[in-house]
């Protein structure tokens, strides 16, 4: 029986195996170093919020905070709903609904119906962050500019959204996102 040191193949194998194991260990250690930067447990904790809609009158809007993001809640007027319904799907820059509450949010068409919660179409509830580069669009306050399509206008790079929060003009790639919403009663919602 040959000793280890005299068998070159076996020695090579051990050296290669040892080095490989060392390399795997070093490479594995990188993952915790990278993953630590992801949102931590505190940030991940899915804090959902409840919002009372009863004080909002027709044509008014409020902003709620959810996960550090503003959520726009608007009680739309009949004209605003009518204007949003009239738009042909072909005129939309982003024809996808972007509504987390639908069964197939990635493919449902962005009709006015699909941008809201079934049975509560007068409420437009959106994450108020421009899908271009994360600014907060104007349009919540009465004195705000609301853009060429009467919805929201992002002052940073000039994106115009319509009365269903759909992108119509400007550099933003997507419609404003609709968060997960549950209507607890007709005037009370849970976001998240």
């Amino acid at each position: 029986m040959a000793s280890d040191t005299k068998d070159p193949n076996r020695r090579d194998f051990l050296v290669v195996a040892g080095n490989t194991f060392a390399a795997i260990g070093a490479a594995s250690l990188i993952w915790p170093f990278i993953a630590q930067m992801n949102p931590d447990a505190g940030a991940l904790a899915l804090s959902s919020i409840e919002v009372d809609l009863s004080p909002i009158k027709e044509g008014q809007a409020i902003t709620a905070m959810w996960r550090g993001k503003p959520v726009f809640i608007r009680y739309r007027t009949a004209e605003e709903i009518e204007a949003a319904k009239k738009v042909a799907l072909d005129d939309l820059a982003d024809p996808i609904a972007r509504n987390e509450n639908l069964k197939d949010p990635a493919s449902a068409p962005a009709t006015d119906q699909n941008r809201t919660i079934e049975g509560h179409e007068k409420w437009l509830i959106l994450i108020g962050i421009c899908t271009h580069l994360g600014c907060i669009p104007e349009g919540q306050k009465i004195s705000d500019a609301r853009g060429d399509f009467g919805g929201y206008f992002c002052p940073c790079h000039g994106s115009h959204y319509d009365t269903a929060g759909r992108i119509r003009k400007g550099p933003a790639p997507r419609n404003l996102d609709v968060p997960v919403i549950t209507f607890i009663t007709d005037t009370k919602i849970k976001i998240g």
Partner: peptide, 11 residues
């Protein structure tokens, strides 16, 4: 982006 932020917004 969330990895860079360590959250859901700049914080």
């Amino acid at each position: 982006v969330e990895w860079l932020w360590g959250g859901y917004s700049v914080s």
